[in-house]
Design a binder for these strands. Structure first.
Lengths: 177, 177
DNA sequence: AGACTAACGGCACGGCACGTGCCGTTCTTG
DNA sequence: CAAGAACGGCACGTGCCGTGCCGTTAGTCT
């Protein structure tokens, strides 16, 4: 997995081959195929083994600050760090490999989304949010524009942009009497 | 281009090969390579030749209804139609091919986004929106969650979901005295 | 301790699609 | 009507795929 990330950063996902990974790692191809059914599955595990756990939510009581901090951290890892191209390529791979799509969702997207929703829920329970607000939707409105920038328009994800999304979200989310 | 879409729907993008397209079309490979530099470029042109133009905005004066109608139409084409898997695969391809990413943006995403912004602008000029509202951001908040569902969580894009996103957007967008 | 077995690294193989030559033919253009 | 470009067809070398088959190593069980 270490070699996968190394070679992936050097060559890019498109030119990355299991053959080259095995050779560089000093390993037979069988040993790779025995554990991973495809290049995508290998990359998913490789990426999750790095920093997948680092994305935990703080709960300082200040919802907006907590959201901001966690998102900035995720953006730093997935959109700015050296692994960003590989993560994007993995999402790309998910578009034509249902197995990868399912695994990516199950092991990364869904847990991450659940954490966001849980944090929103905590805030709602404390009366910081309108009780009828759709938390899943709020999560999507928060994440959606960021992934949109990352994957579609490919513009840089500045922290200013994150703040603007947060502003917009809270403008429609605040406690309504 | 017709053969590309046909074969693409049959085999899926991953198994689609220029070799097979040329053979099915009764054409030499040179003839394909002369016009398109990659499978992705060919698919982009093929997709744009279909229904790319059908996504124009109505302007009935009712902003919400117009947005809703245009989005439902786009969703029908890109997320529900038979070309949906190919469109998703193209976005996937853009993740590791900067040329495709640029072309996709320039020829599809940006024009579409510009239309949305223009429609919002018209509404703002008529006083239907707060004058200080960030239209580009509004567009992203509208599109983002939809692409998020389409590409990331891969859940179905129901018209109910579209409506909920619209609701959320307008809750934070309405004219503020 | 020793025997058994599963996993291993290395190598070779057939298969496929890539991208690019070269052929002789057909179509377009001036 | 002549020149040249574009064409369909075919073949080639290349790279990686996924899978066999070796002989060796490492872990397990009694």
């Amino acid at each position: 997995m270490r070699t996968t990330l190394e070679l992936g950063q050097e060559l890019g996902y498109a030119k990355l081959s299991i053959e080259a990974i095995a050779a560089r790692a000093g390993v037979g191809k069988h040993t790779v195929y025995r554990r991973w059914s495809s290049k995508g599955a290998l990359l998913l595990d490789s990426l999750l083994s790095r920093g997948g756990s680092a994305l935990d939510y703080p709960d300082t009581g200040d919802l907006r600050a907590d959201l901001r901090r966690q998102i900035q951290e995720a953006v730093g890892l997935l959109a700015k760090g050296p692994l960003s191209p590989l993560f994007k390529a993995l999402v790309g791979e998910a578009q034509h490999d249902p197995g990868i799509a399912a695994a990516l969702n199950e092991r990364f997207i869904a847990p991450q989304a659940a954490k966001t929703v849980a944090r929103l829920e905590a805030a709602r329970d404390r009366g910081q949010l309108a009780p009828d607000f759709d938390l899943d939707l709020a999560m999507a409105i928060l994440s959606g524009p960021l992934y949109f920038r990352l994957l579609i328009t490919q513009e840089p994800l500045t922290s200013d942009y994150v703040d603007r999304v947060l502003d917009a979200l809270f403008a429609g989310m605040g406690p309504r009497p």
